[in-house]
Design a protein around this nucleic acid. Structure first.
Length: 256
DNA sequence: ATGGTCGGCAACCGA
């Protein structure tokens, strides 16, 4: 089973890239974040024509998550407690023997901003979400844009960046608390080396050429799923002459 | 390079 994740920064703009990518990589589940489309505007037809069904949870302009799959998808839930009154940042479903949770963790803006505390609180709520809905002894795969680089080897300049949003001790604590429920970092299992990134900030013009990257997109799994993982890799996607997202695709394969 | 580039959506906000 192949599970992948990609922050699209607009699923409609990135649609040609995503369609070409699923054709080449044949994921059993592709989790998207920052779809930036209301549910009525989600490009269902294009995915169905490619042989993929979609479940999604969107809102106007911002955020938005979706799962694209060629397989039967069941037990779809939206948000912590439903769509109403929540930003579109979480969608969960069951595919095969796996419970899949796709999140777009709040970015947090700046450690001094109120949004930063909201990010920490959101991660706290996510821990309780896993506690109440799932069992770490079953196969749970948590993927998405976590907006946190967990370790020094996950950012291009850890000394300078420590304390910045995305690489801050408070974020590390909040993320470790979710991990402690029962997750393993599947990409890290297969790549102990550092310097492998999934994000280069659009706003830093030279970020790509200087490789000023961050590993903020993740595929984590409970032990019963993680021990079945066979590979994990990053795929950058500037294809078809289209504009790439500032995130990459991230893939994990499981012998499931 | 404490700047900058995107996308949504129609002025700026968010990343």
């Amino acid at each position: 089973m192949r599970i992948a994740t990609f922050n699209t920064n607009s699923v409609r703009v990135r649609l040609p890239i995503v369609l070409e990518w699923i054709e080449k990589f044949n994921p059993d589940a592709l989790c998207l974040q920052e779809t930036k489309a209301q549910d009525k505007d989600f490009p269902i037809d294009a995915f169905e024509a490619a042989g993929y069904g979609c479940v999604f949870c969107g809102q106007k302009s911002y955020a938005g998550v979706a799962v694209i799959s060629p397989k039967p998808v069941s037990d779809v839930t939206y948000g912590f407690e439903g769509k109403e009154g929540e930003e579109a940042r979480l969608i969960a479903c069951r595919i095969g023997s796996v419970d899949l949770v796709n999140t777009y963790v709040p970015q947090g803006r700046d450690p001094e901003a109120p949004q930063f505390k909201e990010k920490l609180a959101w991660l706290g709520r996510l821990r309780r979400y896993f506690e109440s809905r799932f069992n770490p002894g079953s196969r749970v795969v948590w993927v998405g844009d976590f907006n946190v680089a967990p370790e020094a080897i996950d950012v291009y300049d850890p000394k300078r960046l420590l304390g910045h949003v995305g690489y801050h001790p408070e974020e590390h604590k909040a993320l470790a608390n979710v991990k402690e429920w029962g997750f393993e970092d599947v990409f890290r299992m297969h790549h102990p080396e550092g310097g492998l990134y999934t994000f280069w900030d659009y706003r830093a013009r030279t970020a790509l050429e200087r490789n000023h990257g961050w590993r903020v997109d993740h595929i984590w799994a409970t032990a019963p799923a993680a021990q079945k993982s066979t590979d994990s890799f990053i795929d950058r996607a500037p294809r078809l002459g289209e504009r790439p997202s500032d995130h990459t695709f991230l893939v994990a394969d499981f012998d499931l």
